[in-house]
């Protein structure tokens, strides 16, 4: 394999190290191309079928609570693409409890002269979510094609919203990993925020009761990275009365959430006590 060894005199920068780890991870996953293809297809089909469920509701009732299928498709595509990006990057945080804390191998990461966040990002660059990503993108484009009044600014706002959404979901995964310092094993309850977040994000905010709306606006800024940017991109007025321009700024909340989770992470690492070996 070319270029996998490095003379010890040269040190790698952070991004260089990450590229190296990501490259190794991709090579490793492609070692079993059959498994990879089956898993990616399974991922694609599963997520596509879940849109078929929403479409069936639309088909039967004529609208999704008064929303047209184009708008719902854009929402659905946005949240799935954002989550797929976070899933690709954040695998190390997802398995953190079982593979690092319980086994005590987190101690070894602490010995390395690099940020633990960087090292865990490099745990695996997961290719499997590419199925969800492609499917989300497919539904997103179809939604833009179907929706009335698509704005040209969507070309800027939607990628910005995807970045904000990916940052938010990555923040959830980091928070979940930080929780493992207390619980040791990973807690599946956090799936409520990841998979459950995707589930909630694919419907318009107006469909939910007030407690859930507040939760996915102020606790987990899901509405800020999905609902408002979608309204802005489609020039759709908000039935709840927020001005439309808010959607151009709100994805920043995803990054703010990530920032808070990184602070939590650093506090948690500072208080880490090894489980021993």
């Amino acid at each position: 394999m070319p270029d996998m060894t490095q003379s010890p005199s040269r040190t790698l920068s952070g991004p260089g190290l990450y590229r190296r780890m990501a490259g190794a991870s991709i090579v490793a996953q492609l070692r079993y191309p059959g498994t990879f293809v089956i898993q990616a297809i399974g991922n694609f089909v599963t997520t596509l079928l879940s849109f078929f469920g929403i479409w069936s509701l639309f088909h039967r009732f004529g609208s999704i609570a008064g929303w047209d299928i184009g708008t719902v498709a854009v929402l659905y595509g946005l949240v799935n693409v954002a989550f797929a990006v976070a899933e690709t990057l954040g695998r190390g945080f997802e398995v953190f409890g079982g593979e690092y804390v319980r086994t005590g191998s987190f101690d070894r990461l602490l010995l390395r002269p690099r940020s633990t966040l960087l090292l865990l990002l490099g745990h695996e660059l997961r290719l499997r979510p590419i199925g969800r990503f492609l499917q989300g993108l497919f539904v997103l484009v179809a939604g833009l094609w179907l929706a009335p009044h698509v704005q040209w600014s969507a070309a800027l706002v939607l990628p910005w919203a995807i970045a904000g959404g990916a940052a938010m979901f990555l923040g959830v995964l980091i928070g979940q990993a930080a929780l493992c310092f207390i619980t040791v094993e990973g807690l599946e309850v956090v799936n409520v925020l990841t998979y459950g977040g995707v589930e909630a994000g694919q419907y318009p905010l107006t469909m939910f009761g007030r407690w859930l709306r507040r939760f996915i606006t102020f606790v987990l800024p899901l509405a800020a990275v999905c609902y408002y940017p979608t309204l802005f991109s489609l020039a759709h007025p908000d039935p709840l009365g927020m001005p439309t321009w808010i959607g151009a700024l709100s994805p920043a909340a995803g990054f703010a959430f990530l920032g808070i989770m990184i602070l939590v992470w650093n506090r948690a690492v500072a208080g880490y006590v090894s489980s021993g070996s």
Partner: peptide, 16 residues
């Protein structure tokens, strides 16, 4: 998941 689904169904049914 139950709560999210139920609220979604409720508003779909009420809108039509």
């Amino acid at each position: 998941f139950g709560a999210v689904t139920l609220m979604a169904y409720a508003s779909v049914y009420h809108a039509a």
